[in-house]
Design a protein around this nucleic acid. Structure first.
Lengths: 350, 350
DNA sequence: AAAAATTTTGTAATCGATTGCGTTAATATA
DNA sequence: TATATTAACGCAATCGATTACAAAATTTTT
């Protein structure tokens, strides 16, 4: 109501008695336009408070400067941090970030991709949902020639770039750390087996056991589902065994937390009797009175790198799509839940 | 490269030997078009895998179906949860959510608003940054007639809708709870004074003191800055006083956490000697070995309601902008950090 | 069966910016 | 001074969908 009509290049062209084409070129610093007119146009545009209509430009150019990010849930520490990294890297380049949630449902994922493609997005970043089995919807993205970057949870597909951490190494590091703490019977609480990340963490675990001459005990490996309850149940199950573990490596922090709660419940001391380590370095792990050892996935950096991969892919306006696979190094944060060395120090201090 | 050219209504019109106008109308279920052709067009469109170009439509209609959300940081539990609420409520209506971060800097906020307006957004949701002092940039939003909804951190402006929790009541509830626990010298760690939320929490604190006949001691009220360190420092400062407090109500969970850490450090028992309560119900508060009492702001609900307010505002396509102010009730989660009743029970059980 | 009323579809402008091609104006060359 | 270059700018089409207005086709009425 309060008037403020949008001013267009036509308004400017009328005022200056030049053509709209000239105004457009002048605003785009086209050298075909004399410096004098360019300056005049720029000045007038500023005076008239001209704002370029990005929709019109997008329609003409086919580029919207919007990218879409698909994650299971936006309010999970890891994902929101990745998104933060993406946003901060892309904003200076004029991109806006549109968020979509799959709720861990493959069906939603398909729908989100469809509407994103339809919305003329310039690129898609995604972490696949736990329930995603086939990749038809993702192939569609490639067919439309829309740049795609997987982060963390990827699918093995030719021609798609990805940014992940080295989950194998992470699993190896954690397990080796536990061994170094003197643990010999290390249990592993894994996750959804159709996600590569859990597979690799498990493999890293196996490799560390082997390298240190420890036996792989199938009963010590339990599938958990990322929730606290799952950690509680796992401990219950493990402590039914004849020979109890002396360490637990959980592939998620909430599972580790549940495990610790149940251990305490059973009056089992952590880390004295059992060392525990989690995965993801959720904020809460370091705030606990008994801080939890965990693997940091540097989510914000992951987002930043993913954005860079995207930018490179877009800028190399070559027809050939180059596939980049970035593997970031994991960081092991040793905390009290698995740190027996600090125990000795405390004992010595007495 | 892989061809897949976009099909437009012109492609359909050629194939069917009708005009593009007819196709457009048919697709929009315009009753002026015979049912027969409508069905034919629909069928052909499906066969040709036609997808409407939302950019063209947006240019024509002036509506993009994109809304922007501006928050200080996207990876803060509270904000990402609000965004989740907004996204989930708006998606069924065909809206996409674009996120922007102000990094708590007024300057960024101004810039974000400008680029959002320029991007032809259909609405803006925002929580103002701590450093935002004047509201010129926000007035610009109103002048352009773009629907605006504040959530949590609002500014007092005529004509702008908002969704917040009742911070006064929350402050009152917490304080009263502490009093009921037997505390009489309650300290309050406040926040940035230019944000309404902290002002109201403080006022609620004052009101509860007064209602229960407790004296307001200025030395017990300290300005903190939402960080752990700030809580530590505050306790140091408070414990320099002649008469120490016997309770601490922090206007933020991290500050409460810092306070607890420092109290423990000084061998002061929580909640036996000092009760502590925080604000925001950050996930970690309930996972601690000593869970922290806190106020839940129902962020996801807040986002959902904000989205509803927006939708109402858009749907009532009346010229008059109606200003809606929603105040949600806070939830008090009493946990061990301030719960002395459970202590007695434990004692009795021995 | 002719005229009137109604249905159905087409023409062309529009949203705002961009750009290939052509034209005019200014400068350089002969 | 006449001609060749170059510089500066305008015309009009284009991106894809929508829609007021007009025209054609069909049905109803007399």
């Amino acid at each position: 109501m309060s008037g403020k009509e949008k001013v267009t290049i036509y308004d400017i062209s009328k005022k200056l008695n030049v053509s709209a084409a000239t105004v457009s070129r002048a605003l785009n610093q086209n050298p075909k336009i004399s410096l004098k007119t360019r300056e005049l146009v720029a000045k007038t545009a500023a005076e008239m408070n001209y704002k370029q209509n990005r929709l019109a430009q997008a329609l003409k150019s086919g580029r919207t400067n919007n990218i879409g990010v698909i994650v299971p849930y936006i309010n999970r520490s890891f994902f929101s941090s990745v998104i933060r990294g993406i946003e901060e890297e892309l904003r200076p380049h004029g991109y806006h970030v549109i968020i979509c949630q799959s709720h861990e449902e493959a069906g939603n994922e398909v729908e989100q991709i469809n509407t994103l493609l339809n919305t003329q997005i310039d690129g898609i970043f995604m972490s696949v949902s736990k329930t995603t089995q086939n990749s038809d919807h993702i192939k569609k993205v490639l067919e439309e020639n829309t740049p795609l970057v997987f982060f963390d949870r990827k699918m093995e597909m030719p021609g798609v770039s990805s940014v992940v951490i080295d989950d194998f190494k992470a699993g190896f590091m954690v397990t080796e750390h536990l061994i170094q703490q003197g643990c010999r019977r290390i249990a592993h609480l894994s996750g959804e087996s159709n996600l590569e990340i859990y597979k690799y963490r498990h493999e890293g675990y196996c490799a560390a056991l082997e390298e240190h001459g420890l036996e792989y005990v199938p009963e010590y490996v339990i599938k958990a589902n990322s929730k606290i309850e799952s950690g509680i149940e796992a401990v219950a199950q493990l402590w039914d065994l004849e020979i109890k573990p002396d360490a637990i490596f959980a592939a998620g922090d909430y599972v580790a937390l549940g495990a610790i709660q149940e251990l305490k419940n059973r009056k089992i001391r952590v880390p004295e009797d059992v060392c525990v380590a989690g995965f993801s370095n959720e904020p809460f792990t370091k705030y606990m009175e008994l801080p939890i050892t965990s693997i940091d996935q540097t989510p914000q950096l992951m987002g930043k790198i993913a954005a860079q991969v995207f930018l490179e892919q877009v800028q190399e306006n070559q027809t050939l799509t180059i596939e980049k696979k970035v593997v970031l190094p994991p960081g092991l944060f040793v905390r009290d839940s698995s740190d027996r060395s600090s125990l000795k120090v405390q004992a010595e201090n007495r």
